[in-house]
Structures are given as C-alpha cells and as structure tokens.
Computed example of a mutant assay.
Amino acid sequence: MRTAIVTGGTGGIGLAVCRQLLADGFHVTALFGGDQEAARRCRDELGITTLQCDVTKMAECARVVEQVHLTVGPVDTLVNNAGICRDAPFHKLLEGDWEKVIATNLDGLFNMTRQVWDSMRERGFGRVINISSINGLKGQFGQANYTAAKAGVIGFTKSLALEGARKGITANVVAPGYIDTPMLAALKPETLAMITDQIPVGRLGSPEDVARCVSFLASQNADFITGETLNVNGGQYLG
C-alpha cells in the first residue's frame, strides 16, 4: 500500500484530496494546523490519522514525517496543500501578514518536501504534488503576498521536477480557480455571483474537481508528466 501525506488535509480541498487518495488505496495521513474540530470530523468520516503540524517549523515537519515513517512506512506521495490568506491592498499590507503567508504557503512547501526527498531519491520513486492557485498565475488585487507565494510554488516545482526526474520522482502543480469551500461561501452573495459570472463553464469548482487531478498525478498513469501545472479553473484563466 502506498503512503501519502496531505498538508492542510482536514477541510475543504485537503479533505477531498484525502478522501480521493483513500479511495485510490493509499494509506493517508492528514496534517492540520490547529483546528481540532475539523481534524475530529476528518477522523470520524475517513478513519485516517490526523497529526497537528505547523508547516512553518522545520522541526515539526521532521517530527510528523518520522512518525509516519515509523508507524506506516516511507512516504510515497506528498501533497502540499496547506495555505492561508491575509489579504490587503499593497499600500496597506502589513509586514507580519506578508511574512505569515510566505511562511505557510511557500516556506512550508520547502520544510515538508525536504523531509521526504532523500527517501524518495533512495527508493527511486516519489510523487510531490503542490497546490498553487489561479491567482499565482494571473495575479490578484489585494493579494501581493498570496500571489507571490503561489507563483513561487510553481517555480519551486519546476526545479524539483528537473532534479527528481532521473530518480523516479515527479513533481507537479495543481492550480485551482474558485472552488466552493467554506472560505469562499463566506463572501457576500453578490460577490460570489460576480465571480461565477466570470467562469466560462458557469459554476464554481468543487473540491472533488481538484482531488481528481491530484489522484491522476499521484497515479502510475502520470509517470511521464513532471514539472507541469494543471489548471482547474473552468476556463477562467488560460495560462
């Protein structure tokens, strides 16, 4: 049985990814930052292990990966999904909100991937799947911190792909557009309607739309695909 870790795995897109990988036959561990109730719901629904981890701290990432390695086995697939927003126009953007978003969305990518990379190289197999965003491709008003981090995810992944190719490791990006999650549902109805009107297929994406893409990239069917960005945005941005 192959082993997967999903960061930010207990809600929204992360939960859908965990559900899909579990259906695909993976042993799945979901990492979460601090929402104990979401972690409980994830355990109750899926029956998987959830581990609290601050991905901005290298030592915590090392601890949870070692725990998975000792209790389940080496990590075959890492899905870096953890992310936060701290939105503000640039002239009002606080230094702390820049640092928090970069630390979680980009530094966390390095911290987690570094823990599994050597083992993947040694075993000659691995899948690293990083979740970016439509806004990391096109930019977005009020999200200089978020878009910088999500654009960085893509560059980071391309370099990983080049370094991992001869070692049997693929590294790819999934870049969701506007997905129907509780975070998006909190927007005003008129704002949500305006966003939906901009999507050519006429609807918001679902977490399952993203999860199916992760499933494909984690599978043997994607052996010859690496360094790519798979856009899941209903045609809203063709980048």
Rank of each mutant, 00 (worst) to 15 (best):
Q20A: 11
G168H: 14
G142I: 09
Q143H: 13
A171W: 13
Q115V: 04
S219T: 11
A149T: 08
A211W: 04
Q52N: 01
A218G: 10
R43F: 05
L160A: 02
G11N: 09
R203K: 15
L21R: 15
E66K: 10
I154P: 00
Y178S: 14
G73L: 06
F224D: 06
I102H: 06
K150Y: 12
A88L: 12
L230S: 14
Q115K: 07
F125E: 10
T71S: 04
P189L: 10
V173C: 09
F156D: 04
E163R: 07
G235E: 15
K158W: 10
G177L: 11
V174D: 02
C61P: 01
G205W: 15
W98F: 08
M58Y: 13
T10G: 02
T49P: 00
A144S: 13
G108F: 06
I13H: 03
L94A: 15
R127P: 07
K188V: 03
G83V: 01
V75T: 03
E208F: 11
T147A: 13
L184H: 08
W98G: 04
R43M: 09
C18E: 03
L78M: 14
D44Q: 03
T226M: 09
Q115G: 07
A4T: 08
L21V: 00
P74D: 00
Q220M: 06
M120W: 10
G47K: 08
A211Y: 02
V17S: 11
F110M: 03
V6Y: 05
V232A: 08
E99C: 05
L93G: 05
A185R: 14
Q115P: 06
C61A: 10
C61R: 09
T157F: 07
L162C: 07
I131R: 03
D54I: 04
K92F: 04
R127A: 12
T196N: 11
F90E: 04
A222E: 14
I134M: 15
I154G: 08
A211H: 07
K158S: 03
T50C: 05
K150M: 06
G235K: 12
A175R: 11
V214W: 08
P176K: 05
A62K: 09
V201Q: 15
F110I: 02
P89L: 03
E45F: 01
E163L: 10
A218S: 10
M194W: 00
L22K: 06
V174G: 00
A218V: 12
Q67W: 02
M112R: 05
I199D: 00
L31W: 08
G11T: 10
K92I: 04
L106Y: 00
L21H: 09
N233H: 12
D44A: 05
Q36C: 04
G239V: 11
T170S: 14
A185L: 10
P74F: 00
I179C: 11
A144N: 06
D118W: 06
G25P: 02
I134Y: 09
T29V: 12
H91F: 05
Y237K: 01
T226K: 13
V72E: 11
Q236A: 15
V101L: 06
L230Y: 13
D118H: 09
F26E: 01
G227N: 09
T29L: 02
G235L: 13
T71V: 01
A103V: 07
